[in-house]
Structure formats: C-alpha cells, structure tokens
Design a protein around this nucleic acid. Structure first.
Lengths: 141, 141
DNA sequence: AATTAAAATTGTAATAATTACAGATTTGAA
DNA sequence: TTCAAATCTGTAATTATTACAATTTTAATT
C-alpha cells in the first residue's frame, strides 16, 4: 500500500503536502518534531508552510494516523507508528527509542470499573541510553 | 514535619517564596501549572515574580522534591507527590487524577540488560473521567 | 550593630512554540 | 468552464519559557 492509499485508509484526503509529511513520518523513526519535518521537506516542497505542517499533524492525530508524544519538554514529537509501544528518551543525547509496551490490563480494567473511560495509554522512560553510557565510560578511561 | 523542615530534608534552603510554593504543592493535589501557583500565591506575596515560580519549581525537580508532568500539552504541571504513581487526564475537563502505578519490573530489567539506564518512569492515561461521562449522559436524557 | 559577599528574588526583555486568521491557491463536482 | 469548498500559505498574535541584569535578602564576620 502506498502513502496515498494509506491516508485514505484513515479517511484523510491526500494532497502533495499530506503525502510528503506522512511519507516522512513512516520512513523516519526518529519521532520528529515540527521543525525537523518542516526543514526536511522544505527542499522538495519549497512553498511548504510551517503552519501546514502543524495543521497536517493535528489532522493526522485526530484521524488516528499519527501519535503525538509529550516526552520531550521542549516541543511535541510525532510518531507514525500508531501501534501500542513505549518510549525511552535519553537525557544526554535526547534521542527517543521505541520499546515494547506492557499493557496494564488489570489497571485499565479497574479504571473502567471506577468509571474512567481510557482512550490513550502513554508509557515512557527517561535515563541514559547505551550509546551515551559507553561514551561517558570511555571518556573516563 | 513542617514545610521548612521538609525543604531541608531535600537539601533545599528554605525561603518565604520556596516555603509558600512547596506548601501549595503539598496542599493542592491539582497538579498545578506555573500560572495556577503564581496566581494563588500572589495574594499573600504580592511581590512574587513568575520567574521565581519557574526557578523554584526547577530547583524542586532537581532536588527530587517535586515532579514535572508533561501530560498536559499546553504547559507543564507539577506534582508534590514524588511517590511512583500514574496519572489520568480527562480530555473533557482537563483535570488530572492520581492512580496507582504498576511498575513494569520485567521491562525495566530487560531495558537494563540492553544497556538503558532507566531513571524515570512515566505512565499516564487520557480519556473521559467519571464526572464528565455522567454529565454527558444526563444531557442526552 | 555595621559590613560584606553570596544567594535569592525581581522585572524586563528575548526567545521559541503554537495558534489565529485572512488571502491565495488548488481541487473536484456541476 | 465555472464555482464553491477545501487546502495551503504567510504574517501577526499569543503564550510559555528562559536569559539576564539590577535589586533585595540572608547570614556570616567584624
């Protein structure tokens, strides 16, 4: 399935900009922020407006075609992988890693019992990633 | 233990402003944002600067006396309860609820095995809270 | 009590992310 | 081809946060 059909499957009317942004999201697992996407696509689509990137990602999130991460304090990040998974952000280099998510079914059940209607589950970790840990260790020696 | 001693126990030098802010955090489980704290304390401390609220909360977080939540997209929220617990934010009213947290020990173990040094665990849910669900239902009838 | 240096606080200005909005462009049906 | 709706664009406004220099407070020392 190409990106055009992929957008349609989420009831999103495709356009040059929407296809380019979704294509970027699907091909780059970096959990990009608005600016990263805007700068990356600016070469191919010089007329692209940053407002369009904002609007488009909002649309994607509303249609369930992307997820917004609030893991980075500075600015929102976006993920084209909408499957349930957790994240890890390195406090040193800022990189965001994907991790398998354990879905806490018992908790969600008890929340439902209490009358909470759970629509989104967010799970993330912060700390030091293997790369940065290695780098720090080798500096010390 | 009073707030003065409480701050000292986190190696934070007490001051009028710091005591007032920590006192507010401990007494109000609303997970307030900077503005809420600033506005609430402004009556008692008219000279209080919003910069001081920012600086003080940053200091609290650094010393482990408070936690910053990024659950609300608009702005950072703060929690004086530093014990491990999860949160639920209602998409309708915005209120943030405390929930017991299931610590995914197995995942953390495997992350450690992979070389990730986990320092923070964040777990939160979004959806509709019981109050808003009731309100919506009664409107429909 | 006066002196003084360090720490804390304050207020303003700068920065950065996001949103509002109006005009231009594109799309697709008639 | 025409036209209305949808989309996109660029600028301006808004909002959250940070930088920073000046002022005030604190606490130790004389």
């Amino acid at each position: 399935m190409n990106v055009y059909e992929y957008l349609l499957s989420y009831s999103i009317k495709p356009s040059v900009q929407r296809i380019a942004i979704m294509d970027y999201l699907l091909k780059h697992k970096t959990h990009p922020c608005i600016d990263e996407i805007y700068l990356a696509l600016h070469d191919d689509i010089p007329t692209l407006s940053k407002t369009t990137v904002y609007n488009t990602l909002k649309l994607f999130v509303e249609h369930g075609a992307a997820k917004m991460l609030t893991i980075d304090e500075r600015n929102a990040c976006f993920d084209g992988d909408t499957s349930a998974h957790a994240h890890f952000q390195c406090k040193c280099c800022g990189k965001i890693y994907d991790l398998p998510m354990h879905i806490p079914s018992e908790e969600i059940n008890s929340m439902n019992m209490m009358g909470f209607e759970v629509e989104e589950i967010h799970s993330y970790y912060k700390g030091i990633c293997p790369e940065c840990k290695d780098k720090n260790n080798s500096e010390k020696n």
